[in-house]
Computed example of a mutant assay.
Amino acid sequence: MITSDPIGDWTWEITPGTGDIRPARAVEIAGAVWNVLNRHELAIHIGKTGFSVRSVGDMRDVRVNANGLPFEEEPLRSGTALSSVVAQAESLEGDFLISVRVQCPGFWREPGAKYRAEKLFALQVDIWKGSLIVVTLETYSDAWLTMDTREREQAAVHAENAPRLAAALEEVSALLGCAPTPGDPNRHATPTETGFEDLRIEGPAYDDSWGTFDVPARARRLRSLLPPSEDEYPEVTEYPVRYFTIQRDGRTLGFIWASAADNAAGYEPRTAAGDDAFEAGAGWMLRLRDAHSRGFTAPEALDWVAQLPPQQEIGSIAEGAPQEAPSLDALEELSGRY
């Protein structure tokens, strides 16, 4: 499953012996770690980057803040958006927190297949007051675990992916000159220096942690993109559902659905599609609200929405007729896994 919050994280702290560490160094380190991940297809170009400079004395004093920049193969090459922002940071004087955060698309594998997630990892490099470097790596996939986040053993998936993660962590440690500090145990798993503890031994901290935490978190994120409204269908049902696949440029962004037996309807974002899944989903939810205001039942709304003219920014319906899932949980599973 692809999660909204990290499955686990690792941190490396580096204190160089001499010299002031300039802002460009944060990007150089991020690029070097990215290259390690890239060798194992855990990060592939092009990622999304955020870059910020904050005063250590007052974190509200933001001198530079840029988000959504492309993280290219040579991020500091002259003419790139990131190089221009870094040049601005290089001109500043004072004690700052320099932060580079990179969203890393990458591949997780199953026997005979591999799947892309737009945020398989997130990489952050912080420079504190020009003297301390902190590198943090987070993962948003359970492919490295012996049991997935719905409590099912996955020996074959673990065998395909865990060695890739272990090799990457070892290479990053060699690059940075120190071993990582694994993050604390969380609701999903317990990180170690080489990956994660075996969930089959102690068991997970929560039953179905993905369904318990990620499904509500996705719903909250989607709702945060919408204005308040009373024109809404219930978004929970115990009945089978009919649904359409939403695609844009050949990539699945999510699923719009309606209950087959009550008046529930909604949209399930495909987590692996990243931010695009939620941004498109807001558009489809507005269409459902329009249907509700017209007095359509949920099944009627699904058919009505399918007949509306396509809009490039929110994608289009891929099928000529709706598909069926035995439950909303089954559709949520589909949207979170692939």
Rank of each mutant, 00 (worst) to 15 (best):
H45Q: 09
H40N: 09
R289N: 03
P6G: 05
C178D: 08
G112T: 05
S173I: 07
G112D: 03
E232P: 06
T149D: 08
E300K: 14
S316Y: 10
R200E: 03
V62C: 04
L225I: 00
E153T: 11
V100C: 08
E324Y: 12
R223T: 12
E170D: 12
A318P: 06
A26P: 01
T245Q: 12
A156M: 06
R287D: 09
R116D: 01
G79C: 10
T212G: 11
P185M: 06
W34K: 02
V215H: 02
D5W: 11
T18H: 11
C178Y: 01
E313L: 05
E151S: 15
R187M: 12
E230H: 15
Y267G: 01
R200I: 03
P191Q: 08
M59T: 13
Q323L: 15
S84L: 15
P310E: 07
A143P: 00
S55L: 11
E300C: 03
Q88P: 00
P240S: 10
L308H: 07
M1E: 04
R251T: 15
T252I: 13
T245K: 11
N35W: 07
L92I: 05
G8M: 05
S84T: 15
F255Y: 09
T49P: 01
W257Y: 05
N186T: 00
R337H: 10
K114V: 12
T194K: 11
D148A: 06
L137Q: 02
D9A: 07
Y243R: 02
E110R: 14
P326L: 12
T18A: 14
S4C: 07
S327P: 04
V134H: 06
E324N: 12
R218Q: 12
S131D: 15
P163D: 02
A155M: 14
N263I: 09
T194A: 12
R22L: 14
T252L: 07
A306D: 01
L42H: 02
D198Y: 11
D214Q: 04
E41C: 05
D126N: 13
P23T: 01
T297M: 09
G203H: 10
G274D: 00
T194R: 12
R218L: 14
K129S: 15
I14C: 07
F121N: 02
D148N: 04
R187D: 10
G47M: 11
V62N: 10
P180K: 07
A219Q: 03
K129Y: 13
G183T: 07
L145T: 04
K129N: 10
E230N: 15
P204F: 00
R109Q: 03
V53C: 00
Q247D: 14
A273Y: 00
Q103D: 14
E170W: 11
R242W: 03
S84G: 15
Q154E: 03
L120I: 03
D9F: 01
G79S: 09
G130N: 02
G211F: 02
A321Y: 13
L132V: 05
I14F: 01
F255N: 02
S55F: 11
V53Y: 05
P23G: 00
P105D: 04
Y233D: 00
G19M: 07
Q311K: 09
P70K: 13
E313P: 06
A81E: 15
W304I: 06
P227T: 04
Y115C: 08
Y233K: 08
G295P: 03
E110F: 13
L92C: 13
I314P: 00
G250L: 10
I256M: 12
R220P: 02
A89N: 07
V53P: 02
I46K: 10
W210R: 02
R200G: 13
K119P: 11
